[in-house]
Amino acid sequence: MSAEAVHSTSALTEQLSRLPGVRTATELFAGYPPHPVDRPLQPLFRRGGLPRGEATQLTGAHAFALALAACAAATREQQWCAVLGLGEPAVAGIADFGIELDRFVSLRTPPQDWLRVTSILVEAFDILIVRPGFALSPGERNRLLAKVRERRMSLIVLGELPGSGEQLAVRSTRWSGTRRGVGRLEQCTVQVHSPRTGTHSLLLPAASGGAAPVPASNGSASSASGGLAPAAASGGVAPVPVASGRLAPVPATSDEVERMIRSVD
């Protein structure tokens, strides 16, 4: 039995040493420090920031806005961000999310070439927001994820990508301010669910155009009153976890290590 254990350990070590881009045990254990995100979004991510070296999957109605909000803080720290396959983004809207426009590039390449363009961009960019033009085969997916891990960049995929680390889904969006043909759109309360950190509510976009936490007193009352929500508090208050799962940043668990190994094979 002990011989078997030794054998499996050495096999595991061998497998781990074949992981591209992972050089030390600490890197395997803790990963790379994440890209910073704005305060209202921090609780969404397990380690409080946009994970590097892995893909982040964003699904749901408001995924692009969530992706923009997630990369805003990093662009302000001089990280480069590219957007691929989204048509023509509105510059004023992007700027409202707090994105540094000098560090932002939009690509309008044909959708059927998205994988090729992505694999070129992964080499140089720190953050990449991609809407896939077609679904990937498992082999292509693994090669892409391995490249992402090796370059230690953040790949944000708007759509399904099995094997991605963080998987955020926008569950519900609730616009307020229109009041049945009287007002105008003022802010949107979204519920974002992550298998890792649970469900959170935040304002995306808030009245200022960026992301903001839901004001603490404003719970579910605003939905009943139909858009008489007060203006969003300008930061400081952490978003309200509705059905919080794990909140504290925990190191990679064994199932994640296992998943990394599987993705190599």
């Binding site: 510059v91 932002f104 590039v105 690509l107 309008r108 070129i120 080499e123 960019f125």
Partner: peptide
């Protein structure tokens, strides 16, 4: 941070797909 690499990558894509496929924003 690595401006040369960004420029090189974007020029490569411009070479492959045409100059108008890589766009930088302005207001």
């Amino acid at each position: 941070q690595h401006p040369g690499r960004i420029a090189h990558t974007l020029e490569r894509i411009q070479g492959l797909f045409g100059p108008d496929t890589v766009l930088v924003p302005g207001l």
